[in-house]
Design a protein around this nucleic acid. Structure first.
Length: 674
DNA sequence: AGACGTCCTG
DNA sequence: CAGGACGTCT
C-alpha cells in the first residue's frame, strides 16, 4: 500500500515481470542479436535496454558523450551517472543495484561503478574516467552478445538516465547544463523516494519522467549538433541553446559539417564510430553528401526508438510500482485466456463417465450429445420462436411459462444480475427459512398436506464466500417469476457470458453447455436431493440447463439420485433399527433434528462442508421415513423381500419444489467453489 | 422397446 | 459412485 512496503523483487522476478509485460517477444528477439538494424529500428515498438545488448551499441553514446570535444563541457556524471538517479523506477521495484546491473540495464553496470568526483574537467580525472569506462565496457563485452550493428539504445538509455537525474533542474526549454555540480541529488531525491504509492503519486512520477525524457531528447540533439559544428565551443553553446529540430538544418550547414568532420581530427573518429555502428560506412562512400543525412536519420531513429523504449520502460516500472497487483492480475487473466481453450473444460470430464452403449461419446461429437443437439438447438434458437422449445421440456406442469433456451443463456435483453447474487439468495443462510420456522416440529402436518406447491419454500444455504455474505443482507424477493427470469441469465458471474468471465476459477466455465456432468453438478444434485428424492428426468433437465442432455447424461443424473436414495434409505433404516434396539416405543417420538446422528450422517453425505442450510422440510421427510422404517421393522414387515416398497412410495410423494435458484447458470460451478 | 427403479457389487 | 442384472410400467 505504501511505497516503502513495496515488495522487493529479485532480478529473476523482475525478468518475469518483464515477460508479463509482453516483452517476451522482444527478449526472444534479443536472442537473435543479428537481425538487421533496419528491422530493429523500425519495427520494434520500443527498445528494451538490457544487459544483453551488444557492447558496440552500448558504447555509442558513451563515445558520443565522452568524446574529447565534449569532455570539457560535460561533467563526469554524464559518463558515470549516479546510480541513485539511474535506478529511479527500477529500484523501487526492488532490484538491488548490484543485481540489477546484471539483470537489468547494461548502463546500470556503469552506473554502479565507483563514481569519481564531478571533476572540473581536469585531465587526470578524465583519463581516469575513460580508463574505468574502458574496463567496465570490456567486462561487459565479455558477458554480452556478439556485437550487432543495430541497436543504439543502451547507451542512449544511459545518457537519458543521467539526464533524467538532472533534467528537472533545468528549464525544459533550453540551457544545456554542462556541469551542474549539484549531482542530481535533487531529482533523485524528489522522484525516487515516494511518500505514498498512491495512484496520484504514480501519475505524478510518470509525468515527471516523461518530462525528463523530453528534455533529454532535446539535449541529445544538441550534443549531436555539436559534433557537426566546426565553430568553437562558444558557438556550439549558442547553437544548442536554441533547440533546433533535427531535420530542418540547412543544407549548406550540413555540407559544412561534412567538411568539418573530415577536417577535424577529433571529430572524425567519433563520426566513424557512429557510422560504423550504424553500418553506414558504405553510404558515406556512395553519396558523400547524402551520407551525413543518412547518419542523421539513423541517429534520429535511434533517438526516437530509445525515447520510446525508455518511455515504455518508465511507464511499465511506474505501473508495476503503483499497481503491482493489478498488473499481475491483468496479466494472469490475459494468460489464462490464452491458455485455456474453450474445449478444455469439456474434455475434462467427458472421459469415462458415460460408457453406456447407447451413446458412444466421441471427443468432439458424441451422438445424441453435443454435436447433434447443438445442430438442432443452435439454428432453432435463432430461427424459431423461443416457444418452440417448450415442448421438449414440457413436463407435468412444472414450467409452462418459460421457454427455456437449451443453450443456457437467453438472447433477449436481461438484467445482468450476477450469479453470485442469485446464489446468495438461493443459498441464503437464514433462520428465516419458511420451512425451518413454519413447519418444523409439526410432522403431522406434513402428512396432511402432501406435495403442495412450495415454490417459495426453499431451503436455505449459506455460502461462505464473503462476497455472498455481503449480499445476504439484501436478498431480492424470490418470487418464482423472478427466479424464472434470473435462471435464464447469461452465465458469467459478472453478467457477461464472454469467455474471460468464465475463465477464472473452476476448470469448468460457468455457462457454456457441458457435455458431461461435473463435480459441480454432482454437488448441486446432492443439494437438490434435500428437496426432491424422486426427480423426473424432465425436472432434471430444467434444473441443469447448462448441460447438454443426452441419454447418457440423463441416466447418469437419474443414477445419481438413485444412489442418493439408496444411501438415504440405508441410513434411515439403520437408525430405525437402532432406535428399535434402544427400546423406543412410540414411532412418533422419532424425530430427525439437526443435531441427531442421522441428520449428521445425511448432511455429511449430501452437504459436505455444511455450507448449505438444510431445509426443514427435509428434516420432516427424514423423520417420517425414519418412523415408517421403524414401524415396519417393528411390525416385522422386513421379512417380506419387498417390504420397503410401500415406504418408498410414501416418500416419493413427499418431494417438494426445488428452488428456482438452482436453475441459475453457473450455479453448479459456484457451488463447487464455495 | 424404452424409461425408470431397485439391488448388488466393486 | 458406477456398472450391471433384473423387475415393472407404459
Amino acid at each position: 500500500m505504501i511505497p516503502n512496503q513495496l515488495k522487493v523483487s529479485s532480478p529473476v522476478s523482475r525478468q518475469e515481470e518483464d515477460k508479463m509485460d509482453g516483452r517476451t517477444g522482444f527478449e526472444q528477439d534479443r536472442g537473435h542479436a543479428s537481425s538487421g538494424h533496419g528491422q530493429g529500428l523500425n519495427s520494434e515498438p520500443y527498445f528494451q535496454t538490457d544487459s544483453l545488448l551488444p557492447s558496440s551499441n552500448a558504447s555509442l553514446i558513451s563515445q558520443f558523450l565522452s568524446h574529447p570535444m565534449f569532455g570539457r563541457s560535460l561533467d563526469s556524471t554524464i559518463l558515470f551517472p549516479s546510480s541513485q538517479a539511474v535506478s529511479l523506477p527500477q529500484d523501487k521495484c526492488g532490484a538491488s543495484p548490484g543485481e540489477g546491473a546484471q539483470a537489468l540495464a547494461f548502463p546500470r553496470t556503469r552506473a554502479s561503478a565507483p563514481m569519481p568526483c564531478a571533476g572540473d574537467g581536469d585531465q587526470l580525472s578524465n583519463q581516469h574516467l575513460r580508463a574505468k569506462r574502458a574496463r567496465v565496457e570490456s567486462i561487459i563485452q565479455g558477458i554480452s552478445l556478439p556485437p550487432t550493428p543495430q541497436a543504439f539504445d543502451t547507451s542512449l538509455e544511459a545518457a537519458f538516465r543521467h539526464e533524467r537525474e538532472r533534467g528537472s533542474e533545468i528549464p525544459p526549454e533550453n540551457k544545456r547544463k554542462p556541469r551542474v555540480p549539484q549531482q542530481g541529488l535533487g531529482v533523485a531525491g524528489r522522484v525516487a523516494p515516494m511518500g505514498g504509492s498512491s495512484h496520484a503519486k504514480g501519475c505524478q512520477q510518470l509525468k515527471e519522467q516523461l518530462c525528463f525524457l523530453e528534455q533529454q531528447l532535446r539535449r541529445l540533439q544538441e550534443k549531436f549538433y555539436q559534433v557537426y559544428d566546426s565553430a568553437d565551443a562558444a558557438q556550439t553553446q549558442e547553437d544548442s541553446e536554441k533547440v533546433q529540430p533535427l531535420p530542418e538544418r540547412p543544407r549548406d550547414r550540413l555540407d559544412k559539417d561534412s567538411a568539418t568532420v573530415t577536417s577535424n581530427p577529433c571529430k572524425a573518429p567519433l563520426w566513424r564510430s557512429i557510422l560504423e555502428v550504424c553500418g553506414l560506412e558504405e553510404d558515406e562512400d556512395k553519396c558523400d553528401a547524402g551520407g551525413l543525412p543518412m547518419a542523421v536519420r539513423v541517429l534520429s531513429q535511434a533517438l526516437k526508438h530509445e525515447l520510446a523504449g525508455v518511455t515504455s520502460q518508465v511507464v511499465d516500472s511506474v505501473l508495476k510500482t503503483v499497481w503491482p497487483k493489478a498488473a499481475s492480475h491483468l496479466q494472469q487473466q490475459h494468460n489464462s485466456c490464452l491458455v485455456l481453450r474453450p474445449d478444455a473444460r469439456r474434455e475434462y470430464f467427458t472421459g469415462g463417465k458415460c460408457r453406456k452403449p447407447l451413446a458412444k461419446p466421441s471427443p468432439m461429437n458424441a451422438p445424441g450429445s453435443l454435436g447433434s443437439a447443438q445442430a438442432k438447438v443452435l439454428p432453432g434458437t435463432l430461427e424459431k420462436s423461443p416457444g418452440s422449445h417448450a415442448g421438449s421440456f414440457s413436463s407435468k406442469g412444472i414450467r409452462k411459462s418459460s421457454q427455456i433456451p437449451s443453450m443456457g443463456y437467453s438472447l433477449g435483453p436481461v438484467t445482468p444480475v450476477q450469479d453470485s447474487q442469485l446464489l446468495s439468495q438461493l443459498l441464503d443462510y437464514g433462520q428465516h427459512s419458511l420451512w425451518g420456522t413454519d413447519s418444523r416440529g409439526s410432522p403431522s402436518a406434513l402428512e396432511r398436506c402432501p406435495p403442495e406447491p412450495l415454490s417459495l419454500h426453499w431451503g436455505t444455504v449459506k455460502l461462505r464466500s464473503s462476497v455472498v455474505r455481503q449480499q445476504q443482507h439484501h436478498p431480492l424477493p424470490l418470487s418464482p417469476a423472478n427466479m424464472e427470469s434470473l435462471a435464464l441469465l447469461p452465465a458469467g458471474r459478472d453478467g457477461h457470458s464472454d469467455l474471460p468471465a468464465a475463465m477464472d476459477g473452476a476448470p469448468f466455465a460457468s455457462t457454456q453447455m457441458q457435455e458431461a456432468l461435473t463435480p459441480g453438478h454432482l454437488k448441486k444434485a446432492k443439494l437438490m436431493f434435500f428437496f426432491t428424492r424422486y426427480p423426473s428426468s424432465t425436472l432434471l433437465k430444467t434444473y441443469f440447463l447448462d448441460v447438454q442432455f443426452s441419454r447418457c447424461i440423463t441416466s447418469q443424473l437419474i443414477k445419481w439420485f438413485s444412489n442418493f436414495r439408496e444411501f438415504y434409505y440405508i441410513q434411515v433404516e439403520k437408525f430405525a433399527r437402532q432406535a428399535l434396539l434402544e427400546g423406543v416405543a412410540d414411532a412418533c417420538t422419532l424425530q430427525v433434528s439437526r443435531d441427531s446422528e442421522l441428520f449428521r450422517a445425511l448432511n455429511m453425505h449430501y452437504n459436505k462442508g455444511n455450507d448449505f442450510e438444510v431445509p426443514g422440510r427435509f428434516l420432516e421427510v427424514a423423520s417420517l421415513t425414519l418412523q415408517e422404517f421403524f414401524s415396519a421393522v417393528r411390525a416385522g414387515k422386513d421379512a417380506d423381500p419387498s417390504w420397503k416398497k410401500p415406504i418408498y412410495k410414501i416418500i416419493s410423494k413427499l418431494d417438494s419444489d426445488i428452488p428456482e435458484g438452482f436453475k441459475a447458470a453457473g450455479c453448479s460451478q459456484e457451488l463447487l467453489r464455495s
